[in-house]
């Protein structure tokens, strides 16, 4: 148990550190690196919380897919000529004030709240249970998410490739 807690704290610490890197660093590539750190440590936390399937998905899709997309985005929208990919930030004061406000509202109201105690069902075969749920209770969302992915990919591909088809416009 102790070991688990230590790992949990370590992962939370890594996550926090990566996010701080993202916020503080001006370089886009470093920010992407920070995001990766955050995503991987979150996957670790998920695994610790017995959500192995989710942890795997997080690693495969998030860290593997979304992050790659983002890095593509960075590459394609910046002319790389040895220059570091810097980005500016503004409204620090406003942003921090807002963030601190939101955070304090959330934390204060969290402390005011008495969460109901419920009995969690112990599920040993996480992946199998999720598979069954996806094909039974969650079949409708599962199918809809298929349509969603299809529509988004077709639309995104069309939008991004429009210039290739119409080079003169």
């Amino acid at each position: 148990m102790i070991l688990q807690e230590i790992i949990l704290y370590a992962l939370a610490g890594t996550c926090t550190g990566s996010v701080l890197l993202m916020i503080a660093h001006k370089n886009l590539m470093y920010a992407a690196l920070g995001l990766m750190g955050c995503l991987i440590s979150l996957a670790g936390i998920f695994a610790l919380l017995h959500a192995e399937f989710l942890a795997a998905t997080q690693l495969l899709i998030y860290a593997g897919g979304v992050l790659v997309l983002i890095i593509f985005g960075i590459m394609l929208t910046n002319r790389i000529a040895g220059k570091p990919l810097l980005t500016a930030a503004t409204h620090w004061f406003f942003g921090i004030a807002l963030t601190v406000g939101v955070a304090s509202v959330l934390i204060i109201s969290y402390h005011e709240t008495q969460f109901e105690s419920r009995i969690a069902s112990q599920i040993s075969m996480n992946s199998q249970a999720i598979g069954i749920e996806l094909m039974s209770t969650y079949v409708a969302p599962f199918e809809v998410s298929g349509v969603l992915l299809l529509v988004c990919l077709v639309g995104a591909a069309f939008t991004a490739s429009w210039f290739k088809k119409h080079p003169h416009e």
């Binding site: 897919g65 979304v66 997309l69 983002i70 593509f72 985005g73 394609l76 929208t77 988004c152 990919l153 639309g155 995104a156 591909a157 939008t159 991004a160 429009w162 210039f163």
Partner: peptide, 10 residues
């Protein structure tokens, strides 16, 4: 992310 990057590229 996919849609966002596509729009961003355009």
């Amino acid at each position: 992310a996919a849609v966002g990057i596509a729009i961003l590229l355009k």
